[in-house]
Each structure stands twice: as structure tokens, then as C-alpha cells.
């Protein structure tokens, strides 16, 4: 395979899409499987180590992982020639492949929206980047946490569609 062939670029986009996706979903699952259940068990005086140091750094890689995943994913779908068909879930095209990847893409897009427009704005209040009253911080943390759980839920069928598309 020559270095500059179309197939190589196609693979390159898939590789970058997967790298960013692991960065994103890895952090999502870290938050939901490790951090959220463990923080309440940490003595109060030690919790700022998580909320002031680990959380801001993890949120950086989390949200930019999400951004890279959707950008490289859209380029990949466009290069594969099924972007338009997948957006309309393959309806009218009699393509189970495009229906499957389209459902995965829509689930991923909802998750990306949740990251950038619900989780991150609310986490900014939680980590002190945006001024807020203690009551606002409590509400913001709750909303960010629940939305993160929704994304964990959606990640299961999303990954079925992404990884299982070749069965269709």
C-alpha cells in the first residue's frame, strides 16, 4: 500500500477517530466507573486533590477527545461516501450498513452535544472557572453528573453500532 493512497488516508482518519474516541470514552468511563463512586469515600480535606487538580485535567482531555472524535468521524464517513445516507439513517437506501452507522453517528453526536453544551458549561461552575453561588454549584454538579450518566448509557448502543457495523 503506497503511503499517499486514498486507502491510506482512509485508514489514517479511522485511526485518528479511534484514538480520539478512546481518549473520550476512556475518560467518560473513568468519571462514571471510578471517580464519581469513589469521591464520596475520600476524607473531605483530601477531596480538593481530585476536584482542583485531577478533574480539570481530565475534563480537558475528555472534551477535546470528543471534539476530535466527531471531526475525524465525519471526515471518515464523508470519505467512505455514506455521510448523507447515514445522516438520514439509510432510510430509502435499503442499506442496513448505513442505518447502523447512522444510528451510531446520531448517538455519538448527541453525546458530543451533551459534553460541550451541558457537561462542560456546568463543570466550569463546579471547578470554579465560572463564578457561582454554592447552590448553583450544587445544581450544576448534579446536572453535569446526570448528563455524564446519560452518555455512559448511550455509549453502550453507540459502540454496538460503531464496532458491529460490519455485520450489516
Amino acid at each position: 500500500m503506497e503511503l499517499v493512497s486514498f486507502d491510506w488516508w482512509l485508514f489514517c482518519m479511522r485511526w485518528l477517530h479511534i484514538l480520539c474516541g478512546v481518549m473520550w470514552i476512556g475518560h467518560l468511563w473513568y468519571f462514571n466507573f471510578t471517580q464519581t463512586p469513589t469521591v464520596p469515600k475520600i476524607p473531605t480535606e483530601l477531596r480538593p486533590a481530585v476536584t482542583k487538580f485531577i478533574l480539570p485535567e481530565a475534563l480537558f482531555w475528555f472534551r477535546w477527545g470528543a471534539m476530535g472524535t466527531i471531526i475525524f468521524g465525519l471526515i471518515l464517513a464523508w470519505m467512505n461516501g455514506y455521510l448523507g445516507s447515514a445522516i438520514k439513517l439509510g432510510i430509502g437506501d435499503h442499506s442496513a450498513h448505513n442505518t447502523t452507522i447512522g444510528l451510531g453517528m446520531w448517538l455519538g453526536t448527541i453525546m458530543w452535544f451533551n459534553v460541550w453544551f451541558i457537561i462542560w458549561p456546568n463543570q466550569k461552575k463546579n471547578i470554579g472557572l465560572v463564578q457561582a453561588t454554592p447552590d448553583e454549584v450544587r445544581k450544576a454538579a448534579r446536572l453535569a453528573g446526570l448528563t455524564s450518566r446519560v452518555n455512559t448509557l448511550l455509549s453502550i448502543p453507540m459502540l454496538y453500532c460503531m464496532a458491529g457495523v460490519h455485520f450489516y
Partner: peptide
């Protein structure tokens, strides 16, 4: 009633249920 999203196990359970719905949807659409 407690929010099922407060439980990690129930979140995963709902994720599996939604996956089955997605599989049925693929077969219904395509």
C-alpha cells in the same frame, strides 16, 4: 422514586436494553 441514573448498574442495564432497541430498529428500518 430514585433516579435509575444514580445507580451505575441500572445505567448499564438501561444501556443494554437500549442496545436491543437499536438492534430491533436497524431491522425495522433496513
Amino acid at each position: 422514586m430514585k433516579n435509575p441514573l444514580d445507580s451505575l448498574n441500572q445505567t448499564i442495564g438501561l444501556g443494554v436494553v437500549l442496545t436491543i432497541v437499536v438492534i430491533l430498529l436497524i431491522h425495522a428500518i433496513a
